[in-house]
Design a protein around this nucleic acid. Structure first.
Lengths: 347, 347
DNA sequence: TTGATATATGGAATTAGTTCCACATTTTTC
DNA sequence: GAAAAATGTGGAACTAATTCCATATATCAA
């Protein structure tokens, strides 16, 4: 087997010291100023690079963080990863990536692989927490953090969907809207299908009895929402609330095609804060989830555990960003006399 | 130092064989059926897992591929990564990710880190190839493949921008367009700024003298294109060609706001094939770059070199996907008598 | 019945580091 | 000035695997 060009032994010989001394130089163990200079010179001359595997074999620290992602080709995941990397890199950690392709089984397999690989910790953007997930988190010694899903028995980090929905509900109530259609997804998705919707209804109806929320179920994708748009339109609300920006985009397109003006004739809002929302006409008002920040928080959390600070469980407190753009009409303003008399020419 | 729970020695003792025999069992070296059974049983009982670092130290093969990306929060990069993973995972390789944040210096540093880490190969989605990049590819023993940039001295893989431009030019010519405005970026970007534009002009003007292409420079982003849209409109072309989909989206939004109908009054096309293009109104006709396929090709290429097949240099042959949607008017059809007489009611 | 070849197997060396321990200096304290 | 403490240093053991080499059988041909 071909051997390494320059080893610690070569450096030691050249510097006239022992292997131990070179190792100490490398790891801030103590060494006299004199030998320090010699070793430094020898390392420069030889171009010595420490062997990763030999070092890790002994120290049992890989400085590698395993990350399991449900898929790669989504902006959401990209931002999450971006946030994780931003925190991990300066600390000398690097990430190994595995993709679960939205399969719980592959997710577990990937975690297993990473564990064998000797990563220091694992971060999983999970598609669903099972008993097996919980068991592994306990059985293996290493820190595991789940994002996107919630379970009291493990470390996890999740967006507060109820708060997001509530926020939007309050906003639309304040804008004077009374009849909303919530274009949502199946209730089998607890976060988006239930929490987000319930949160919205609570915020929208809070403190009044004349508010009305209808519900129409769609899929997650743009096309499925587009296909439900006619039904939504028939209910004749003043605002359509898409459970995700993609849903809202599908509805927006339908309205465009039919000549329904947004927000003059009807308002549309979404959740997610995708960049696309700024590009469509009119630009979509939305509650943005800061996935990059979530990635940063997740990474910090993991780092904290790694350093022995057995941080208190689960932090659900992910801040939300309300992005007010052009797709909502202010019904309150419109009925004020000062507006209705001074601005008729603008129509 | 805390030691590993179960080592190959423990398995050997339990099975009543030597370490060597267990190692042979693990690595398909020969072993009698009898001992094979014993070892299998011992491994099951102990739950033995081979130590990654000890193994790699000896074999000098990490089964790790280093990937350097300019940024993470883009769909393009996500697709590329998705393609890479799809090829690498089934072969037992895993990826270590580093982000260069669009800096050539960080890119080089990241490569260095990966090399120290003992990866088997490096894939760089480069922001610009320097002499240093070429030098490293030669100096370090390991295979390095660059994507996104071109240089004859190293392995690289790039989209054929000239062909993409040409393809679009031919299409618009066939649709009967004679006056185009190319909304492009600075020529300091060789691929997009020059190759793509020149390719378009060639395809558009091929074999005729009555074609005209004006050029307006914009930035890469949606907003900068939006700001140039008035100037473009003044030139009164029959079609606007955005150098990227983002540019086209900015222009599309401007037209929407001014009541200019697309494609009835003016056609708009782009390059890239971003999903967004299908969602806007009208859906954008574009030349899509299959970044996922590019990732797959890149990974295969690397795998091939790793296996000793010193594959011939650089394969520029990335297939393009023409995506015809709604944003281009067929001027040829329009002038046919059968249309102008039978369909006036549709206006 | 030999000698030659094939098939298994164990022992020891090897991989490139870190770290413990013993020991030699030097410095500080009483 | 002797004892105690601090500071360096090298040797050897250790980390957990792979692999070379020697050796022991078993199989086969002459």
């Amino acid at each position: 087997m071909e051997q390494q060009k320059v080893t610690i032994k070569d450096v030691a010989d050249l510097a006239g010291v022992s292997k131990s001394t070179v190792s100490r130089y490398l790891n801030n163990g103590y060494i006299s100023a004199e030998k320090q200079a010699k070793v430094r010179k020898a390392i420069e001359q030889t171009g010595f690079q420490s062997n990763f595997f030999a070092k890790r074999l002994k120290t049992r620290e890989s400085k590698l963080i395993g990350i399991v992602l449900p898929r790669m080709d989504s902006v959401t995941v990209g931002k999450l990863l971006s946030g994780i990397t931003r925190v991990l890199e300066p600390e000398g950690y690097q990430s190994i990536l595995l993709v679960s392709q939205l399969s719980g089984k592959k997710e577990l397999e990937s975690m297993q692989k990473l564990q064998q690989q000797g990563v220091d910790a694992i971060l999983v953007d999970s598609v669903g927490l099972t008993a097996e997930h919980v068991r592994r988190a306990q059985e293996w010694g290493l820190p595991i953090l789940y994002t996107g899903q919630k379970n009291a028995a493990v470390h996890c980090l999740k967006i507060d969907d109820a708060a997001a929905g509530h926020r939007m509900g309050v906003y639309l109530r304040q804008m004077g809207h009374k009849h909303a259609v919530f274009a949502g997804v199946t209730e089998s998705d607890e976060a988006v299908g239930i929490e987000r919707k319930e949160g919205f209804i609570a915020g929208f109806c809070e403190g009044r009895t004349d508010a009305k929320v209808d519900f129409v179920e769609t899929g997650f994708d743009f096309l499925s929402a587009y296909n439900q748009a006619a039904e939504i339109h028939k209910l004749d609300p003043s605002v359509v609330v898409g459970a995700t920006d993609n849903i809202s985009l599908g509805i927006l397109r339908y309205f465009h095609e039919r000549g329904v003006r947004v927000p003059e004739d009807i308002s549309v809002v979404g959740f997610g804060g995708y960049d696309v929302g700024a590009v469509v006409y009119p630009a979509l008002t939305t509650v943005a989830f800061d996935y990059e920040l979530m990635g940063m928080k997740a990474a910090s959390y993991l780092l904290n555990i790694l350093r022995g600070g057995e941080a208190g469980m689960t932090n659900l407190d992910m801040p939300l960003l309300f992005v007010e753009r052009e797709s909502v009409q202010n019904l309150v303003k419109k009925t004020l006399p000062i507006n209705s008399t001074s601005l008729p020419a603008m129509m």
